[in-house]
Design a protein around this nucleic acid. Structure first.
Length: 254
DNA sequence: AAGAAGAGCAACCGCTTCGTC
DNA sequence: AGACGAAGCGGTTGCTCTTCT
């Protein structure tokens, strides 16, 4: 079929969004919703293509976005989910309330993939070279630049799993699996709930990464026992494993 | 202090899927 | 049933910032 041009490129702005554009987009969506992305920029008076508006909203402006660094638990969940689902970032995002597929994809490529690559023993304990960046510090205080609207869509996080999942961008393939997780989604939403010492995770993961590139500690029942985690962590992984096997049973055969 | 290199992330591109007529 | 338009998704790019030399 003939491909419709994403956007007629003449006259449309590209590149980073300005705070003013953000404000206009958020205000418009608040008032009129986003039933038609293609028509939205025109209606809102933005010189952007609909695709760009959609991306900006989904990845950055949505009120239920959880900004800031990924917790260790989130990262481990991503690793596990990626092992089960592959590069289906939106499906993974649907299981991590407040996180977007784009963000998860970025984290995977910049952090997690490297973590899973086998390293020489001498490097395993090496501390990360970088300090938290200014960018990331900004993200910890997301309202510095991003418009905050009155009313029910305050940009404060965290949000409830129900709210977050209900606005997830995930569409078809795994809605059932995602919904089956809804009840348990709060098992790893709160940083406080699973505040585990970093040393525990770094030691465990360092030991668990095997030559296949995956964390055996997460994948194999007969894996050598890691240091016994606290009850909360046990619950977390237990739930994750149960959900994982559920999902694998439900996944369509490819 | 300045430049180079590397890391992180927002945004874009293009293909696929879905919904409607 | 097929054509078409719109939305969704994943891969990739390129800019910005930090760290190193």
């Amino acid at each position: 079929m003939g491909r419709a041009p994403c956007c007629e490129k003449m006259g449309l702005k590209r590149g980073p969004w300005t705070p003013e554009e953000d404000r206009i987009l958020v205000a418009h969506i608040e008032r009129h919703g986003h039933s038609n992305w293609r028509a939205l920029p025109k209606q809102a008076g933005l010189l952007r293509c609909g695709k760009s508006c959609r991306l900006r909203w989904i990845n950055y402006l949505r009120p239920d976005i959880k900004r800031g660094n990924f917790t260790r638990e989130e990262e481990d969940a991503i690793i596990h989910l990626h092992h089960m689902l592959g590069n289906r970032w939106s499906a993974i995002a649907a299981r991590l309330p407040g996180r977007t597929d784009n963000e998860i994809k970025n984290v995977w490529h910049t952090h997690l993939k490297k973590r899973l690559e086998p390293k020489p023993a001498s490097q395993q304990q090496a501390a990360p070279k970088r300090k938290p960046t200014k960018k990331r510090q900004r993200q910890q205080q997301p309202d510095a630049e991003v418009v905050v609207l009155d009313g029910p869509t305050s940009s404060t996080v965290p949000v409830s799993p129900e709210q977050s999942l209900s606005t997830s961008t995930t569409t078809s393939t795994d809605c059932s699996a995602a919904s089956s997780l809804d009840n348990d989604a709060d098992s790893f939403t709160s940083e406080e709930d699973y505040q585990i010492e970093d040393s525990f995770w770094s030691e465990t993961l360092a030991m668990a990464v095997d030559s296949s590139g995956y964390s055996s500690g997460m994948e194999r029942e007969d894996a050598p026992a890691a240091p016994p985690p606290a009850n909360d962590e046990m619950d977390f992984w237990l739930k994750l494993f149960m959900q994982a096997s559920d999902m694998q049973n439900n996944l369509p055969q490819i």
